[in-house]
Write a protein that binds this DNA or RNA. Sequence first.
DNA 1: TTTGTTAATGGAAGCGTTTTCATTTTTCAA
DNA 2: TTGAAAAATGAAAACGCTTCCATTAACAAA
Lengths: 338, 338
Amino acid sequence: MGSNIKDVAKLANVSISTVSRVINNAPNINPETKKRVQDAIEKLNFKPNRLAQSLGSGSFRSIGIVSARSSNQGFVPLILQSISEVADEGNYEIILNNSVGEKKEIEKCLSMIDSKVIQGLLLLSSRINDNLIEKLYELDFPFVVLGKVVNEFLSDKVFSVDTDNLSDCEEAINYLVSLGHKRIGCIHAPLNYVVSKERLEGYIEAHKKAGIPVDYSLVENGGYSINEAYEATLKILKTENPPTAIFATDDIKAIGAYKAILELGLRIPENISLIGHNNYDISQITVPPLTTIDVPILELGRVATRKLIDIIEGKRPPIRTILDTRFIIRESCRKLNA
Amino acid sequence: MGSNIKDVAKLANVSISTVSRVINNAPNINPETKKRVQDAIEKLNFKPNRLAQSLGSGSFRSIGIVSARSSNQGFVPLILQSISEVADEGNYEIILNNSVGEKKEIEKCLSMIDSKVIQGLLLLSSRINDNLIEKLYELDFPFVVLGKVVNEFLSDKVFSVDTDNLSDCEEAINYLVSLGHKRIGCIHAPLNYVVSKERLEGYIEAHKKAGIPVDYSLVENGGYSINEAYEATLKILKTENPPTAIFATDDIKAIGAYKAILELGLRIPENISLIGHNNYDISQITVPPLTTIDVPILELGRVATRKLIDIIEGKRPPIRTILDTRFIIRESCRKLNA
DNA sequence: TTTGTTAATGGAAGCGTTTTCATTTTTCAA
DNA sequence: TTGAAAAATGAAAACGCTTCCATTAACAAA
């Protein structure tokens, strides 16, 4: 209990340099010496003090996760799981930054960086005017963004992993259009997040391409909670000329929409077609099951973490990686009668 | 950029000891000296190297979270938020241990402890045969468990924060009984987690007290996912003598139950009454809204984290804290006709 | 043999703090 | 006015590693 490298060195009858070499798997060690040191380590149950190692080497091997950014609560536990997986493999610790509010978030990040606690940062999403991203870029600190960086100067300089939100949302709307829908509502998330804006843009773009004018009275901010989405849906459905279909940019919002639709005595898909996004578990279980877009959340976390570790270790991974999504047709949409 | 305590000392014309004292708010510093040092710190934008501080002081000020324990995915982001809040206040970092599987989980914990990375550990739930708890207790390492410790030797020695699952589940069953229900099903989580077992026990206990025999063909393991709960409910409903009410030990499972019930052409609450547990957002939005039990998740996280920090800092907080839950009657239950 | 290389190891100087102990300075009661 | 206690500060030894540099040993080529 409480042995240090010195004790090991003494027991193995070598210098602490040699012990350090064994610990770090350095080349050019006599196999016999190595064995002797390893035996001593075992015997003393020696575990290197990570703080001392870090101070000596200059790296604590840890990555920070800026998680409060993800408005989407279903997302977080899933992605943390895959991030942990990869971080563990690379022998990195994960330090959480859950600060709420941009100011506190930035403060906490800078503090962790300045005090040498973290070697890299993973942002779980990107914002439209992302001050943190700008700061990190200026500092030349290793970081990866999950999502698109919209700042025109930075967009091709910042490492990111993402899906193609624009086109997958277009696909969803195209599908509705192909079923004959022309009045399609949209419940989106707050637009200061890039992902939210992109999804809305996909909705708009598809309309343009189909030659259908967007009726903005059918487009509502559904906030972050089921309940806000419910309210937003209600609003849309109570417009003078209500939609025949609704696209929710997130399954959780779709859940709120279900509620509103049912409450007004309408049925899905008979009266209203509904599409979600993300393919959370719950989308399979709704009645009827929800047509949605599958996002490879775990893979997103894995790829991003690998990329971040590469950057930290001086490699040059691709700047931007786009992962595929998958449109999943279930039973929440129907063909509109002519 | 990259200044250290030495630079500050030089600029302020004092020794590094004095700078250290200022940083750490030690007593007995001349206010003028202090001012001078603070100015120098500001001027050089000096931020103490946390790793060096830790090595010097022997504490990195960080707590580990064993999170993969929580089978309950809705729980994690919420509680992480409140944990972060309190940890930030106390100037502690949060390091995530998301290892899957008991063996890896224990390994990772011990490794973090041995290598001095963490000063305390928060277990997001307890298991029936909890080897990690035993190990931590033997090591006399600071830790807090969210949930009950059932090992008879340890139960009154391990710090914990919890709610009274047994009695809140009893209350739920009592309510159903008061509505005239005698055949009540139960969808529970895997019983290797204490909380799952307790909730089932509450169900059983209430039956006993009411003089109603428990029919174990109505008790099913609903696993971790909505889908497993759905399957379990289906099984219960298809028994020869199906129940008139179902208690799901978690709202997520209740969602699975909704699906199964509706699918069989039954209605809630007309044909089947349903009660959940935890009062997640979604329970308000189901049709009809779900009667459930509110658990103060955020408060649970806050109290546990405060307790852990107290332990780390040598104080003696109460061994066990029980927080109140609240039975929330909504519209998913009805009185049974005689 | 001698020389040049490479493998294997040790010594010691960091890394950037905290903390103990000693020393100097100040304060204040007698 | 003195002396003891308290306040303020500094010097230097930790803390437990990594890593650079030097040294020795081994071995092959000349």
